[in-house]
Design a binder for these strands. Structure first.
Lengths: 171, 171
DNA sequence: ATGAATAGCGAAAATGATTTTCAATAACCC
DNA sequence: GGGTTATTGAAAATCATTTTCGCTATTCAT
């Protein structure tokens, strides 16, 4: 069973970005609203994690350990179990997106509106990740899932290669 | 560091499918040739694993545990360490392709010629995986890596959604 | 063919990310 | 405010994968 499954079990969800996303910065307690609507509770830990994503530059992705470390650095103590639980809930609510970058761990980023979805070019040698947009992906993802009668949740296009500087390193 | 990294560390490799693939069925000891060319040794375990992939219907993907179980079922005893080592080597040689399907584990399939590369539509509820082809993916993958000066190894387009039967189940 | 060098094997232990358990705490709703 | 119950943190558990190590089997040169 897909691990993503747990986040969606028992209900449908559309690919549209969460309406909350656009105004997350403006409305301070929007997270609470979004959580409560689905029966989850608002906690300071969840807010701090979301804040971290909002403070993270575009194109940078966070994993559980980085979140833990960054919160420690700013003096916040938080357990890994809480981090993992918060990540699951926020993926479930459409606030975050889970990324598979062929590493042993999962990365997360703020979810983006569907038509602006970006994709990833990964250097398998140094781990650098570049982002790019291409609406063809989105179209194919939509088309393919429509053809098969799937309700679309998410699509990820990941290109693996070796970046220019690693190429020169490797000769 | 990307886990894929290990398989390629220290050398470049192109996206072309391995020339061996086309004739793997015809030439019984082609695997030996391919392995030896890179300094690896041919073993009966590696042959059995490759045989398994060749006996696996298109569109079905194998993980380490399934390989172990299927070999057990046919009376072959093999250790997990051997399976994992063989998988790494065969990915490294371009015989197999590693798939990230957002589960906690990795799946493998026979590598296919680049221009026939297929992609995956995954039901996050029941785990069903459908395959589809679309040359646009390949083009975008090529184009994007060329633009950034990357040497292309592999691209994976994965669409997550809920399949028709799970949709009716979930109401 | 034969034998030295060493890659690969299996078993078991180790690792690393993630998940679960459980008792204490804190959000939510009336 | 108070009862209900989701959430927390700490520790233990889990699960896939990797590593270690002594032994075996493959390769390659003779």
């Amino acid at each position: 069973m897909a691990s993503i499954t747990n986040f969606f079990d028992g209900e449908k969800k559309t690919m549209e970005h969460h309406p909350a996303l656009a105004s997350l910065n403006q409305e301070p307690d929007l997270l609470k609203t979004v959580l409560n609507k689905e029966g989850f509770r608002f906690t300071s830990q969840r807010q701090k994690i979301l804040d971290l994503f909002q403070a993270t530059p575009l194109g940078h992705h966070l994993n559980a350990e980085e979140i833990h470390q960054q919160l420690l650095d700013q003096g916040e103590k938080i357990s890994f179990s809480t981090i993992y639980r918060a990540l699951h809930v926020m993926v479930r609510l459409g606030l975050l997106q889970e990324l598979e970058l062929a590493e042993g761990r999962k990365y997360y980023e703020l979810n983006t509106p569907f038509m602006e979805q970006h994709h990833h070019l990964v250097c398998v040698h140094c781990g650098e990740v570049l982002e790019f947009e291409d609406t063809k992906m989105t179209q194919v993802g939509h088309g393919e899932s429509a053809t098969r009668g799937f309700s679309l949740l998410n699509c990820q296009f990941t290109v693996y290669g070796i970046c220019p500087s690693c190429q020169s390193l490797l000769g």
